[in-house]
Design a protein around this nucleic acid. Sequence first.
DNA 1: AAGGCGGGGCG
DNA 2: CGCCCAGCCTT
Length: 387
Amino acid sequence: MLRMLLFFVVLKTLLHTLNKLIFMNLNIHSRPAMKPEISEQILSVPHKLLNWYDQNKRLMPWRPRDGSRPDAYKVWLSEIMLQQTQVATAIPYFEKFLNRWPSIFKLAEANLDDVLIEWAGLGYYARARNLHRCAKIIVNNFNGIFPNQEEKLLELPGVGTYTAAAIMAIAFDTKATPMDGNFERVTARLNAIEKPLPAAKPLLKKYATMITPDYRPGDYAQAVMDLGATICTPKKPRCNKCPVNGSCLSLEKGKTEVIPKKTPKRKKPSRFGIAFLCINTNNEILLQRRPDKGLFAGMMEVPGTPWTENPPSQAQIQNSEPFKTDWQVVPGTIIHVFTHFKLEIKVLRVNLKYCPKADSLAWHPADTFQKAGLPSLMLKIIRHGLK
DNA sequence: AAGGCGGGGCG
DNA sequence: CGCCCAGCCTT
C-alpha cells in the first residue's frame, strides 16, 4: 500500500516536471508578462483531436483519402477559395478549377478574364486576381514549386498569415498554426478567454501555438477547423459530442454560449440604386464591364445608377439610363447585403424594338445569362427583371 | 487600427 | 431579418 502511494507520488512529480518542461519550451520566445496560464488538461487536446479526426475525417476534394500529403497546388487553391467561404460553397468551384487548370502551370497560362468568369459567384473577386498573379509568380520565380518557408509564402499575393500557415501545415506537414475563425473560437472556448474578438486575436494565437504538436501538425490544424465547423459551432455547440469536452474551461464554467465574446459592430448603412434591364430584338441582355478597382472589380454588370445614400431622383435616373426609352418599372425590390452596406435595387426594364450598338457595352443571350460569369447580385437582378 | 471587399447558410 | 463565417489588402 505504501509502495503504491510512493509510486503515484513519483509518477505525479514526473508528469508535473514533464509539463513544466514542455511549457517552458513552448514559451521560450514569449515575454514573461504575456505568458498565458494553461491548464494541464489542455495539453491532452492535440492527441484527442487527432484521434477524433482519424475517425471522423470529412471528405473534401483537396483531401487525399489515403492520408498522403496533398499537393501544394491543391492546398493553396482550396485555401484561397475557403477564405471567408464555407466548405460546401467552395467545393464545386474547386472541382471546376482543378478540372480546367490541373496544374499551377496551366493556371499561370490562363487568361485573367477566364479565371474571373470561373470565379463568378464566389465573391471577393480580388482573390481571383491575386490567385492568377500568384500562379504566375510561382511558375516564373519558383519553377512552379511552392516554397516551404512561411516568410516566402507570406510575400505571395493573396496569401496572408492564415493561408501561409495552412500551406505550411497541410501541404508540408510543418509545425504551423493557421488561425481562422474556427481555430479562434475553439481556442477561446477551451481556455475560457473572456477578452472579446478581434482584440483577443494575438492572445488566442499564443494559446493555440503553445499546444500545436510537432506530430502531424497538418492533420491537427484540419482537426481543429473541422471541430469548429461541425461540433464547436458559433451557436449551440454540440458539446456532448465533443472529443475534448473534458478539457474545456468554457464548458466547465457553463459559458460556451457567451465565449468567444465579440465587440459589437456598427450598423450597416443602406444604399439605393436603379438597374436597367434592356432586352433587344435578338433576346439579348445589355451588360457592361465594371472598373478594375473597387467592388466587383473587372466583372460584368447590368447597367444602373450609382448606389447612393438616398433613392436616386428622377434626374439622376435619367442621367444614368443607357438609352432614352420607355422604361417599365418591375414590381418589387432586390435586397443584397454586403459586408459593409445593405443595397436596395429597383429594376427598370424595356424590350427594345431595335439592336443598338455602343462602345463599352455588351449584349449577352438572355436565356444563358447564368453562364455569363456574373456576380450573384447581377444574376439576382436579371432573374427578377425577367419575371 | 480600421475599413473595403461577396455570398450563402442558419436560427 | 441579423449573425457568422476555413481572411487579405490598402490606407
